[in-house]
């Protein structure tokens, strides 16, 4: 069996809305292997985003454990999580979440600078060039189109060569042409840095290119 990068054991998560309890994820166990491209597929509201947030440590499960490189990160404090988020994990969001006060280039540099990488600028510039945005490096997020923003977000996720990249509906806010470009770029870059990719999507088209598909229905894995 190949190395497991990420493992989830019996994850559960529910929300409280007024007096009702809504279970979003119910006893989910799964594993992600090194280098694979895993798609988490499901309808809107099936719990994809929540699962992704839990797996990446942005959220805390009600019960269950998450192991990253065999290390349990479930109970880690925010500060203990920080180095993992910076170096081991990369994120791409549906709504980009670029830092509005920083230019495109600076957004990409930022994680590298946090990592005290002396080559931050060079790396960021190189990545921007690869996504054909090197002429826009001085632009602020609000000056970029959605597709451009997502390209910058992509670069930012990869600048520290993380072991695993989480992408939550990365094409969800884009038209099909831009979505296509993003996907291709993502695939290309993933191959170049040989990283694991976990993507949440409801697009069958994308799922078809995945190594493995995990289907979520009502907070459970549909097997």
């Amino acid at each position: 069996m190949a190395d497991k990068v990420l493992e989830a054991v019996e994850l559960s998560k529910s929300y409280r809305v007024d007096d009702r309890r809504i279970t979003v994820l119910d006893n989910i166990s799964m594993a992600v292997e090194k280098g694979e491209f895993l798609v988490i597929e499901g309808k809107s509201g099936s719990g994809k985003s929540t699962l992704l947030s839990l797996l990446s440590g942005l959220y805390k499960p009600d019960s269950g454990r998450i192991l990253l490189n065999d290390r349990d990160i479930t109970g880690l404090s925010e500060d203990q999580l920080a180095p993992f988020r910076n170096r081991t994990i990369g994120y791409v969001f549906q709504s980009f979440h670029l830092i509005p006060s920083l230019t495109a280039l600076e957004n990409i540099m930022f994680p590298a600078e946090l990592n005290h990488d002396p080559a931050a600028t060079a790396k960021a510039a190189e990545l921007l060039r690869r996504v054909d945005l090197h002429q826009r490096d001085d632009n602020f997020p609000h000056q970029l189109s959605g597709g451009e923003k997502q390209r910058v977000a992509l670069c930012r996720a990869l600048v520290n060569s993380p072991q695993i990249v989480f992408a939550d509906e990365p094409t969800g806010n884009l038209d099909s042409a831009n979505g296509e470009t993003i996907l291709q770029l993502l695939m290309k870059l993933r191959r170049e840095v040989a990283t694991t990719l976990v993507m949440a999507t409801h697009s069958r088209e994308i799922s078809s290119t995945a190594d493995r598909i995990l289907r979520l229905v009502d907070g459970r894995i549909d097997s």
Partner: peptide
């Protein structure tokens, strides 16, 4: 954003 990108 800082936190997601791994800032302490």
């Amino acid at each position: 954003y800082y936190k997601i990108l791994g800032a302490s």
